[in-house]
C-alpha cells in the first residue's frame, strides 16, 4: 500500500438477510482511493452504492473482505476504535441531512467535537467558523426545522468537517435539495477538495453531479464496473 493510498477495499462482500431472503449487496468489491481524490460512485438505486459508502465510512462491517483506512485493517478494530476512526478521520454527509433537530445549527456542528472531548469554548468557536465557511453565519442559532434543505445540508457539511477529517463520504448529498442549492453544495465539496486537499467520495445517481468528480465509478448489482 502506497503512502498516497487512503482507503482500500479488498474483496468486500455484504449479505443482508431480509427475513428468509438473502440479498447480496456487495459482491467482492476491490477499490483503492488515493489521498486528495474526488470520486463519484454512480449507479441506480439498489445497486449497492450506499452499502459500499457505509463500508468506507466504517459504519458497516463487510461480511467478508477487508477495508483499510490509512493502512489500518478496520476488521481488527472494536466498536470504540471504529467510533474514534469515524470521529477523527471521516466526515459523513447524508442525503436526509440527519441533523439533530433539538439542537440549533451551531450545536449540531459542535456535536462531533463534544464526542471528541474538545473544550466547550473551543467547540463553539470552531463550529461558528465552520458555519461561516459554508456561508451560514447568519443562521447559527436556527434549528434545523427553520432552515431550507440546502441550508440544512450545508450545516451537515460543516458538521462533517468538525474534527477536521481527511475523508468526506457523502451519500446523495444533493438528492433532497433543488438544483441551485445542489450547485452550492457541490461548490463546497470542490473547494474542500481543491483548496484543502480532502478526499471526497460521493454517491449519486445524477450524471451531472458525478461529472464534477475526478474519477467516476459505476456500480450495478453490488459490483464495480
Amino acid at each position: 500500500m502506497s503512502a498516497e493510498e487512503i482507503v482500500r477495499l479488498e474483496g468486500v462482500t455484504k449479505v443482508y438477510h431480509m427475513g428468509k431472503v438473502e440479498v447480496q449487496a456487495l459482491r467482492g468489491v476491490n477499490l483503492s482511493v488515493k489521498r486528495g481524490e474526488f470520486i463519484a460512485i454512480l449507479g441506480p438505486s439498489g445497486s449497492g452504492k450506499s452499502t459500499l459508502l457505509n463500508m468506507m465510512g466504517c459504519l458497516d462491517k463487510p461480511t467478508s473482505g477487508k477495508v483499510f483506512i490509512e493502512g489500518t485493517d478496520t476488521s481488527r478494530l472494536n466498536d470504540n476504535e471504529l467510533a474514534a476512526l469515524r470521529r477523527e478521520k471521516i466526515g459523513f454527509v447524508f442525503q436526509q441531512f440527519n441533523l439533530i433537530h433539538t439542537l440549533n445549527a451551531l450545536e449540531n456542528v459542535a456535536l462531533p467535537m463534544l464526542f471528541a472531548g474538545i473544550r466547550r469554548t473551543e467547540r463553539m468557536k470552531r463550529a461558528s467558523e465552520l458555519l461561516q465557511k459554508v456561508g451560514l453565519s447568519h443562521r447559527v442559532y436556527h434549528k434545523p426545522m427553520e432552515l431550507s434543505g440546502g441550508e440544512q445540508q450545508r450545516v451537515a457539511i460543516a458538521r462533517a468537517l468538525a474534527n477536521n477529517p481527511e475523508i468526506i463520504v457523502a451519500d446523495e448529498p444533493t438528492g433532497n435539495v433543488d438544483t441551485d442549492a445542489g450547485n452550492v453544495i457541490m461548490g463546497i465539496f470542490e473547494r474542500l477538495n481543491s483548496e484543502e486537499r480532502r478526499t471526497i467520495i460521493l454517491v449519486t445517481h445524477d450524471f451531472d453531479i458525478a461529472a464534477r468528480a475526478h474519477r467516476k465509478l459505476r456500480m450495478t448489482d453490488g459490483a464495480l464496473l
Binding site: N80, A83, A84, R87, F94, N98, L111, A116, A162, N163
Partner: peptide
C-alpha cells in the same frame, strides 16, 4: 433510533 445512528456515524462512542 435514527438519531442514535446519526450520532454514532459522526463519532459518538457507545459510552456517549
Amino acid at each position: 433510533t435514527h438519531e442514535i445512528g446519526v450520532m454514532k456515524a459522526i463519532g459518538a462512542r457507545n459510552r456517549d
